[in-house]
Design a protein around this nucleic acid. Structure first.
Lengths: 197, 197
DNA sequence: GATAAATGGAATAGCTGTTCCAGTTGACTA
DNA sequence: TAGTCAACTGGAACAGCTATTCCATTTATC
């Protein structure tokens, strides 16, 4: 009679799925890595067929890998949103996001034109958290209100993911410029077209 | 006896080279276009072999196409640098660069990992002009001096090309935030960690 | 020990840049 | 204008790469 596991997959299939995901996650993090199925399989010590079969397609595997990297970032954004003052939450979160981007700057580049539904959803959640931070900071007066929170959140979301190639030094400078640019405009910098010196 | 044109190429070869370049330039500008040799050849009304032969390789053709798009931008930067006050030159140029990016946002995406020496050189020239604008604006006191001009120029160069996907509305907001962030820090926004309201 | 699930890696299919070549065309001569 | 010849052309053939499928063999489960 039948002897297969009734409810789920076989133990080795489960283990290999984990191995494939780990290998993919590792390779996605490395900016120089070539993201072929063959490379992932080799890294995982598996055959190419096994790797694809575990997730259905290469895209689905990459989606899972990137989502695994992104989920803690989303959680961290929500935590900061809940616990910290909006302005400080935003600054802290952006600093950490820059670090994340510097550490895994293969992510943005490799995902163009891929079907990554989970990753897309996580990015939307991330932007929502940022939007809440901005709205809060606008309420407390630490961020300019002449630009809509949706615009600013969209702006930050787009740029933060676009600038994956920035090194640490540049990321710091960018964060400084960005945060200062988000401040409410003062009479000192509102219309500085003519040199004051 | 020999009857070939001694000095140069045949007229049809010259004409087809132009056609190939025009087609490539048009396709590079369209963000949704698939940039295959076949597609370029079809657009130009030529055979694939003719297109490749005219430039030696697909990469060389794309390099030429992108450089053609970029050269006027570089010229414009130099013109503004020479004629306008540094701060205004920078603002005007960045606004125009954003427009350019919005209009041709296929450019940045398609060039990853390609050998495009001329394009690379033009970008370097562009950054040099921006660096000069920044240094000038720092001298007149309209741009912060706590960050080195090299850092700022690098920052602007990287971000300006990274954010190709920004729509017009976002580009305006980005420019506003960026320019305000570049202003000299005031006591009002220097340490606004605690909400003043 | 029986059996179905799972595996590895070869075979397949699809895509794309480059090369090749039989046929065409422009340039020059007389 | 007609003739010639080399440059040039289109597009088929080729080569390289990669995701996916397939299947003979192995392995986990009962």
């Amino acid at each position: 009679m039948s002897s297969a596991p009734v409810g789920g997959r076989r133990a080795d299939a489960v283990r290999n799925r984990h191995l494939a995901l780990e290998a993919a996650t590792a390779l996605v993090s490395e900016s120089t890595a070539t993201l072929t199925v063959e490379a992932i399989a080799k890294r995982a010590g598996l055959g190419a067929g096994t790797v694809v079969r575990a997730f259905g397609s290469k895209d689905a595997l990459l989606d899972a890998a990137v989502s695994d990297l992104l989920r803690p970032v989303v959680d961290r954004a929500r935590e900061l949103l809940a616990r910290a003052e909006p302005d400080r939450a935003l600054r802290t979160f952006l600093a950490e996001l820059m670090d994340f981007q510097s550490a895994h700057h293969g992510i943005s580049n490799e995902l163009r034109g891929l079907a990554v539904p989970t990753t897309t959803e996580l990015r939307a959640e991330l932007e929502q958290a940022v939007r809440a931070m901005i709205a809060g900071a606008q309420r407390t007066g630490t961020i300019r209100t002449d630009l809509a929170p949706d615009i600013l959140a969209d702006l930050i979301g787009q740029t933060a993911f676009a600038i994956a190639r920035l090194g640490t030094g540049l990321a710091d400078a960018y964060l400084t410029v960005l945060m200062d640019g988000l401040r409410p405009p003062t009479s000192a910098n509102a219309e500085p077209t003519v040199s004051p010196a």
